[in-house]
Simulated scan of single mutants.
Amino acid sequence: MNQIQQALTYIVVLLTDMMLQGDPVHEGTVLEVEKSVRDDWRGSRLARDATEKEIEEYRLEQGAVEVIGDDIDALARQRGDLEDEVAVLEQSKGQVATELQQLTEQRDKLAEEVTALEAKAKATKAGAK
């Protein structure tokens, strides 16, 4: 809220339960209202001006709500980033699995070749004797 808007609003404490825009609002609730509403409610004894301590608590609460909202937005962005990283890792995992299968097949072929060469070497050695 900018400086001009803040100067035109007041923090009040309700002195009775009431309905605001169809919603129940209970006695003791701290609200920020325009000057005309504040004047009407004070004149009707529906609300009183908030004390400095109540105003400070209200401002802290509103700031906390904004901070929490910002934190939620940041966490949502982080979650999206992590989901993107997971997708990339899943893709890499698939590529590594394919490479592993190819290397395994290559190892098996080489093992067969080694076995054949060893058998040939034995046969050659046996024939030389």
Rank of each mutant, 00 (worst) to 15 (best):
T51W: 05
E54F: 00
A87N: 05
G28V: 00
D108E: 12
M18D: 01
M19R: 08
T29H: 02
E52Q: 15
E85M: 12
G22P: 01
D39T: 05
L15K: 07
A123M: 04
T98N: 11
E52L: 10
V86Y: 11
Q106A: 14
A111S: 13
L103E: 09
R45E: 09
A87G: 05
S36E: 08
E52N: 14
L117W: 00
D70E: 10
V67F: 13
A123F: 10
E105G: 09
D84L: 04
T124W: 06
D73V: 01
E105K: 12
Q3G: 11
T29L: 05
D71W: 08
E32Y: 00
P24M: 01
K93H: 02
E113G: 15
R79C: 14
L103C: 11
T16Y: 11
V25W: 00
V33T: 01
L20D: 06
D70N: 13
E54M: 05
L117V: 02
D108S: 07
A116E: 15
A97Y: 07
G28W: 02
L117S: 01
T51H: 00
K109F: 08
V65F: 15
I4L: 14
Q102P: 03
R38T: 10
D70K: 12
G80E: 10
T124K: 13
R45P: 02
L75Q: 03
R45N: 05
E118I: 02
E52T: 13
L103P: 11
D71V: 12
D17G: 07
R79K: 06
D108T: 13
V13T: 06
L15R: 10
A119C: 06
K120G: 03
G94I: 12
V33I: 03
I68W: 05
W41F: 05
I55K: 06
M19F: 06
D81T: 08
A123C: 11
I55H: 10
H26N: 12
E61V: 00
